[in-house]
Write a protein that binds this DNA or RNA. Structure first.
Length: 198
DNA sequence: CCCTGATTCGC
DNA sequence: GCGAATCAGG
């Protein structure tokens, strides 16, 4: 595979979205995350924070050289001692420079199209499986959305509207979005469904 | 162990 | 320019 304009464009877009190199590599296909990282560097967009390097290094200037602070030797017209913030929050036309990790609703980690876990009220599950799930929930790693990977169980636990919400996070079955226990309740043979008579 | 990006260096 | 190998870290 080669870096066609289109592929480079995808790379740039995803990188800007804060996607990881491996995620981008998978999306593109035919390349490894190393290739992506290498390309990112070559494109010069490695760190998306550079901003204006015109930082006189205000605070951190104390290191490297025990040089005394310009106590009063500097005829600086604009002292502004206390307000000397390293972060010049003066970026008028710039939208929020969100750090690399943006939830990115574009490409959710939780795969769509998979059988959605039953809502607390919906669905009927076999008592055994239910009990099993209860057990597993105790061992859940309680991962946040951003901590999920392709190898972690994406079974949601708790109420998304509250702080008491997380994902199972246990090792998922190869090729499956859930751990063994949750796969059990998510993928039930129709035959095993205990529905009313007949 | 899983993962992340950064860097090097032969190709 | 490319990217595997390696490094350094979480």
């Amino acid at each position: 595979m080669s870096w066609t304009d289109e592929r480079v464009e995808t790379l740039k877009r995803m990188w800007a979205e804060g996607q990881s190199a491996s995620a981008i590599a998978k999306e593109l296909g035919g390349v490894t995350r190393n290739a992506v990282i290498g390309k990112v560097h070559r494109l010069g967009l490695s760190n998306r924070n550079d901003e204006a390097e015109v930082k006189p290094a205000p605070a951190p200037a104390a290191e490297k050289r025990p040089e005394k602070k310009p106590a009063a030797a500097k005829p600086e017209p604009a002292p502004e001692p206390a307000a000397a913030k390293p972060e010049p929050a003066a970026t008028p036309k710039e939208e929020a420079p969100q750090p690399a990790f943006t939830p990115s609703p574009r490409r959710p980690i939780v795969p769509a199209g998979q059988p959605l876990p039953p809502q607390p009220s919906a669905n009927e599950i076999s008592p055994e499986a239910l009990a099993s799930v209860r057990e597993v929930e105790k061992k859940a790693r309680k991962l946040s959305l951003m901590e999920l990977t392709e190898r972690t169980c994406k079974w949601p636990i708790g109420d998304p509207a509250t702080d008491k919400f997380w994902f199972c996070g246990l090792p998922s079955q190869p090729g499956k979005p859930y751990c063994e226990a949750h796969v059990g309740v998510a993928f039930q043979p129709m035959s095993s469904r205990r529905d009313r008579r007949r």
